[in-house]
Computed example of a mutant assay.
Amino acid sequence: MDLYFSPLACSLSTRIAVYEADAESKVRLNRVDSKTKTIDGGGDYRAINAQGLVPAVRTDDGEVITENAAVLQYLADAFPEKALAPAPGSAERYRLQQWLSFVGTELHKSTFNPLLSPAANDGAKAFAREGAGAKLAYLNDHLTGRDYLIDRFSVADAYAAAVLNWAQFTGIDLAPYPAIVAYRERLAARPAVARAMKEEFALYQAAA
Rank of each mutant, 00 (worst) to 15 (best):
P114C: 10
A137T: 15
E106K: 15
D44A: 11
V57E: 05
A78T: 11
D40H: 12
F112E: 02
A158K: 03
R95L: 12
L136E: 10
V54T: 06
E63Q: 15
G145K: 07
E81M: 07
A76R: 04
R146F: 04
D33S: 11
V64H: 08
A132C: 06
A47Y: 07
N68K: 00
N121A: 04
F79Y: 15
G42I: 08
E67F: 11
D33Y: 13
L164S: 11
R93Y: 10
G62R: 02
K109H: 14
V57N: 03
V71E: 12
G133W: 05
A70V: 11
K125W: 09
L115Y: 13
N113T: 14
T36E: 00
N165K: 12
A83Y: 01
L143A: 15
S110M: 12
L136K: 12
T38W: 01
E63L: 14
V64I: 15
Y138K: 06
E130T: 04
N140P: 04
A50S: 14
Q98V: 06
S101G: 00
Y159C: 00
D151L: 00
D122T: 14
D60W: 03
E81Q: 14
L96A: 05
D157K: 02
T38N: 11
A119V: 10
R31L: 09
A56H: 08
S34L: 13
G123I: 05
G41F: 11
E92R: 13
L143T: 14
T36A: 02
P114W: 03
K125A: 13
A76N: 08
Q97S: 15
E81A: 12
V155Q: 04
F112C: 01
G133R: 12
N49H: 13
Q97E: 15
Y74Q: 03
T59C: 02
L75K: 01
A76T: 11
A76I: 07
L53V: 05
Q97Y: 15
